[in-house]
């Protein structure tokens, strides 16, 4: 080990200005290339929808890893002759530095590599991590960037992968289940309500009709809770879909003479 470190030291001593310029150029070119990939591919993907868009977006992290891998090898080649010993020396020194100085950062970097292999989330997926729910926009080296339904951008370190549950609502498909809730007065024809809510789902132009429709009924102390569980055509339409189901459902239930119910709310007396 000490031999390989001294060999590395002698290599570094031999490093001239040319090599430094070379490394600098590789880093700049890598950075530019990654920036280009991260801008160009999502921009191209935005012209498509459905599966084509997801496939295009999934290329970003893979291309980036490829570019980083090639850059790393080029830099390694310009610093040292990549013999087994020198390679072990470099990686060992790198590992020590990262392990002590930036443990969490390194953990996120490693988790970032695991993400590319295990694919717990990919661009276009709708995930929830520690209460933050949104669409994966970019998978960075250290963090995953999601855009919430409220249009906020949230950066989540990949290291959450180790000890947090990650909920993926569509798992790289176009199928994301949504639900619309209705509360009816307990005295009603449940069979009729069930059929009507099924028809409400079928009538929505946003419905992905190839996927199943579920209507779930549960008795509550104040009434009957119905849920329509169905899939929109595009996960990005989930809010519009839930809104459409809710409006259509309320109209249909009211037209059928069914009474919607709610828990009574009593306004508090103002303090004198």
């Amino acid at each position: 080990m000490s031999d390989s470190i001294s060999e590395l030291g002698s290599h570094l001593n031999r490093l001239g200005e040319t090599a430094l310029v070379q490394i600098l150029l590789i880093i700049v070119a890598t950075w530019l290339l990654i920036a280009l990939i991260q801008r160009l591919v999502p921009s191209l993907a935005s012209h498509f929808s459905g599966h084509r868009r997801l496939r295009a977006l999934a290329l970003v992290p893979v291309l980036r890893l490829l570019v980083i891998g090639i850059a790393f090898l080029l830099i390694l080649h310009s610093i040292i002759q990549p013999t087994f010993e020198s390679l072990v020396g470099v990686l060992g020194a790198l590992g020590l530095a990262l392990g002590f100085a930036a443990k969490d950062y390194a953990s996120s970097l490693i988790a970032g590599l695991v993400v590319l292999y295990e694919l717990p989330y990919r661009p276009g997926d709708w995930i929830e991590v520690e209460g933050a729910y949104g669409e994966v926009r970019t998978i960075g080296i250290r963090t995953v960037e999601i855009v919430t339904l409220g249009d906020s951008v949230v950066h989540i370190p990949h290291m959450k992968l180790w000890d947090h549950a990650i909920s993926n609502a569509n798992d790289s498909s176009q199928h994301l289940q949504c639900q619309a809730d209705f509360y009816l007065h307990p005295h009603h024809d449940a069979d009729h309500a069930y059929q009507m809510l099924r028809d409400v789902a079928l009538s929505s132009p946003l419905l992905q009709i190839a996927q199943p429709i579920y209507v779930v009924a549960k008795e509550k102390p104040f009434g009957t809770h119905y849920q329509i569980k169905a899939y929109p055509l595009d996960p990005r339409q989930q809010l519009a879909f839930i809104t459409d189901l809710t409006i259509r459902g309320k109209m249909a239930l009211r037209a059928a003479g069914m009474v919607l119910t709610s828990i009574p709310v009593v306004a508090a007396e103002p303090m004198s």
Binding site: M196, D199, V200, L202, S203, P205, R248, G249, M251, A252
Partner: peptide, 8 residues
């Protein structure tokens, strides 16, 4: 028919 909750 009409693609409406009351149209089927």
């Amino acid at each position: 028919y009409l693609r409406h909750a009351r149209g089927f």
